[in-house]
Amino acid sequence: EPLWIRPDAPSRCTWQLGRPASESPHHHTAPAKSPKILPDILKKIGDTPMVRINKIGKKFGLKCELLAKCEFFNAGGSVKDRISLRMIEDAERDGTLKPGDTIIEPTSGNTGIGLALAAAVRGYRCIIVMPEKMSSEKVDVLRALGAEIVRTPTNARFDSPESHVGVAWRLKNEIPNSHILDQYRNASNPLAHYDTTADEILQQCDGKLDMLVASVGTGGTITGIARKLKEKCPGCRIIGVDPEGSILAEPEELNQTEQTTYEVEGIGYDFIPTVLDRTVVDKWFKSNDEEAFTFARMLIAQEGLLCGGSAGSTVAVAVKAAQELQEGQRCVVILPDSVRNYMTKFLSDRWMLQKGFLKEEDLTEKKPWWWHLRVQELGLSAPLTVLPTITCGHTIEILREKGFDQAPVVDEAGVILGMVTLGNMLSSLLAGKVQPSDQVGKVIYKQFKQIRLTDTLGRLSHILEMDHFALVVHEQIQYHSTGKSSQRQMVFGVVTAIDLLNFVAAQERDQK
């Protein structure tokens, strides 16, 4: 057995438009009618409502009807409940999964919650491996369901041993009777949507819809739904939504950006999952974080739909894509998950301010006199920076000697690579993860907040409520011999709460 199987392995699926269902090699399930009293909570997966979006479509000038398939009504709160249950049931049916076995899954959280929910009911041990950027709410729900959680670096490539995929496979090879159901490759993922989600949409719309818009992560949702719609409703256009920084969209030119990270969760990847059939997507749109969270908040405030950030991405694209539809036509959007997962993220004004998705003037509360002053007023001194090749031991000596707790790590040209902190280095040394002679590049981390000289002290204040420091950066445009230009970030300084307090105190003292 291989040590790991690539999540982007070539698909062996034989589905073709027009091929009889009787030739399918898979076990198919028909939607079942729910009894009045459910035998367990797993029976509350599927049969989610279709809700008309009344205000947002009109606000953006849509002539067509805009409908939302509300997947956050599933038992675990997301569309991923469907595939989690289906993968477990299919693994039980073919004898792969037996009582007492362990389920391991690399996930952005929602599939993990679905699997942990099913594992709690069915009696399996469950280990979820997820990147650090995923919300604390997801972690809390997983723990409450009895799952064990392993976190991995957000910026690790999918084929790196440190990625959530790599760590999951390492655990599988170490733990007896453990299984990775593997949402990236498992046919049960798109089949769950082909058999149930798509049929529900067709039934709820009486077979009449002209466009379907869905955000894409593993691709199982859009693949399964689109294949069924292509068979039953061939005139329906399928629109895929991919965040900026991901590479799922086609044509490839759409993916060209210097951005590699994004805040919206559960969609987009740096590889093409095996289950994603991009041939059934008629057109791709890219979405960005700001519009995703703005539209998610709009869905909550104006439509009462308590959905997550990827739902915002989907609707932001839908109001663009559906401009081509006329009166009497219908566009369906998939709202994948609930706001429950993001209470401390985009639902929080403070978080939105820190990330730059909300401006101070958007909030009406009274601010102190210094709130709208610029960061450049602080008069920061030149920063202490270190090269990635310097040793951890030497870096600790320098920081202690100069009285700093942290320093930016830059390359020879001064471009920011990340940050090192005294606390992080000492804990890594004590844990045996690094040696004093190791290069400081081994303990770089990139989960820090950046701020510009033109940003306000109010925004800085919000950042420092949650973080010990902020890195002050400025952009530099560099022209190359080819005539092309590129933008790079340079370090201007490091600012802490002490710097802000000293500035405010000094100004008030001078005024007296």
Rank of each mutant, 00 (worst) to 15 (best):
L254T: 15
S486P: 04
T274N: 02
R488P: 15
F404A: 08
P383F: 09
L453A: 08
E258M: 08
A382Q: 14
L422S: 10
M425E: 02
A322C: 09
L335E: 02
G483N: 02
F492Y: 14
A322R: 08
G418V: 02
T421Q: 13
P243V: 08
H474T: 15
L417Y: 10
L399C: 08
I463T: 13
M490G: 13
K446N: 14
M466N: 04
L471N: 14
D438M: 13
I267P: 08
P243F: 05
L378A: 15
L430M: 09
L358T: 02
P388G: 14
E265V: 02
K359S: 11
Y262W: 06
T421W: 06
P388M: 02
Q439S: 08
G423F: 11
S310T: 14
E365R: 13
R278S: 08
V494A: 11
G312V: 02
A382P: 11
S313K: 06
G414T: 12
I498R: 02
Y269D: 02
H474P: 09
Q487I: 11
E244N: 11
I398L: 12
V420L: 13
F404L: 13
M466F: 13
L276K: 10
I238R: 02
S461Y: 05
Q302V: 08
I267V: 09
L347W: 06
T294W: 10
D438F: 13
T421I: 12
K359T: 14
T279W: 12
C307V: 02
L325W: 02
Y445T: 15
S486D: 06
S437I: 11
L387V: 09
K484P: 14
Q376L: 13
T260C: 08
L430G: 05
V281F: 08
G414S: 14
R374V: 09
I390F: 02
V264N: 02
Y269Q: 02
Q256R: 13
S428L: 10
E258C: 13
T344D: 02
A249C: 02
M490T: 02
I300W: 02
E253Y: 07
L460M: 08
T260P: 02
S485Q: 08
V317I: 08
T456M: 13
E475I: 12
V440W: 06
T257I: 08
I451C: 02
L457N: 07
R340W: 05
V491P: 05
I390C: 09
E475W: 15
A431S: 02
D282L: 07
I239Y: 09
I300T: 02
A413G: 12
A322T: 05
E290R: 02
E412S: 10
Q406R: 02
G240C: 15
V415W: 12
Q406M: 06
Q376N: 10
V472Q: 13
E360G: 12
P383A: 08
I498E: 10
N341L: 02
I451Y: 11
L306R: 04
Q487L: 11
L457R: 02
M419C: 13
S485G: 07
A322M: 06
D467V: 09
D242C: 02
T274G: 02
V339W: 12
G266I: 05
Q511P: 02
M298V: 13
V409A: 15
V319A: 11
Y269G: 02
T421F: 02
K359W: 08
K283M: 09
N288W: 11
V333R: 08
Q435A: 14
D277R: 07
C331I: 08
R509V: 14
K402Y: 07
T395R: 07
Q439R: 09
L457W: 02
P368F: 08
K320I: 09
G414D: 14
I463D: 09
Q487R: 11
I398E: 12
L399W: 06
G483P: 15
R340E: 10
I300F: 07
E324M: 10
L358R: 07
L453Y: 02
K442L: 12
T389M: 13
L373G: 15
M419F: 13
N341D: 02
V386K: 09
T456S: 08
V319M: 13
I300S: 06
K449A: 15
L426V: 10
H480T: 08
V434C: 12
I416V: 12
A407G: 13
Q354I: 02
V275T: 02
E361L: 09
W351I: 02
L254N: 08
V333H: 02
K367W: 12
V410M: 13
L347V: 05
T496R: 02
G441S: 10
G403S: 14
